[in-house]
């Protein structure tokens, strides 16, 4: 059955023994979509966070003589009205996007796992209370919830992250809760209860490991959505405000010069698009690799 090519060791008897820890990572890289995603994402993340030490132009330095220059070897993405280099502004904005994506995904993943597990596993009054709150938050379209939140907390990186996290958390809680409920009804939970397995054993050995895969898939999509939401907020002028660059506000600034300088808006948009696509491919990769039904 096994050909030994998927990270398993083949013993002399021809029986393959999988090594659990390495397997997941290796399989992501062997998965075509996962590989493409990692190949796009990793350089982007590295580039974004290494920007300060890279030989790039200062994203905030204006140069009126080079106003609205089209893309060239000097300015890969051209310049804006103030003559600032769009490429280095985009890289800087990418850093913001990545931060928002990673932090929001982490918060919603952890919060979702914690609150959703409590709600789904223990049920009862606690569950009704939590789900009541979740329902209230889910009654707002997510971007509008974030807009409202930003209106309260003000503009800037931290408020944006808080706003998007609050808007996305209810969905994660609801997902985790439904996953817990479905795993909880499985016969292997009965098997564990039959030997009086304590609550922490049921939760950490049986339930959460089996909800982790879909939650990770959801988290990578949440990261993509968070990046899009941040960009939307900044585009509307409510998120990260100039002069600090963000992909959304660069596009906003470019909107005024759409006719004479198409590059200001279009090229940073392409970057958001690429990030979103690779995060979705990553989620597909995770889904396929962690699916217990897939052949190991």
């Amino acid at each position: 059955m096994q050909n030994g090519m998927d990270g398993s060791i083949t013993t002399s008897k021809g029986i393959s023994l999988p090594r659990p820890k390495l397997r997941a990572l290796q399989k992501i890289l062997r998965n075509r979509q996962g590989l493409v995603a990692v190949l796009i994402l990793l350089p982007m993340i590295a580039f974004a966070f290494l920007a300060p030490v890279l030989p790039l132009q200062d994203p905030l330095k204006s140069n009126i003589t080079a106003s609205l220059q089209p893309p060239s070897t000097d300015n890969l993405f051209g310049t804006d009205k103030l003559g600032r280099d769009i490429f280095s502004r985009t890289v800087s904005g990418m850093q913001t996007s990545m931060m928002v994506g990673i932090i929001v995904a982490t918060i919603t993943l952890c919060g979702g796992l914690l609150i959703g597990s409590v709600s789904g596993f223990f049920g009862g009054r606690m569950d009704r209370f939590i789900m009541g709150i979740v329902d209230i938050f889910l009654s707002f379209p997510s971007l509008l919830l974030a807009i409202g939140m930003v209106a309260i907390f003000g503009a800037g990186m931290l408020p944006v992250i808080i706003a998007i996290s609050i808007a996305d958390l209810p969905r994660a809680i609801r997902l985790q809760r439904s996953l817990v409920l479905s795993v909880k009804s499985g016969a292997f939970i009965d098997a564990a209860r039959m030997v009086s397995a304590p609550t922490h054993w049921l939760l950490f050995r049986h339930i959460i490991p089996n909800t982790l895969a879909p939650m990770l898939v959801a988290a990578s999509i949440t990261a993509a959505n968070a990046i899009l939401t941040e960009a939307s907020l900044s585009f509307l002028g409510l998120g990260i405000t100039p002069p600090e660059p963000s992909l959304g506000n660069i596009i906003r600034e470019g909107q005024m010069y759409l006719q004479e300088a198409w590059w200001i808006s279009t090229l940073p948009g392409l970057v958001i698009f690429a990030i979103a696509i690779s995060l979705h491919l990553l989620s597909d990769g995770i889904r396929e690799v962690l699916d217990p039904r897939s052949k190991r």
């Binding site: 899009l228 960009a231 939307s232 585009f235 959304g248 759409l258 948009g269 958001i272 698009f273």
Partner: peptide
């Protein structure tokens, strides 16, 4: 595709 980008 970010909707605002598509719109532009």
């Amino acid at each position: 595709m970010p909707s605002f980008w598509m719109a532009l």
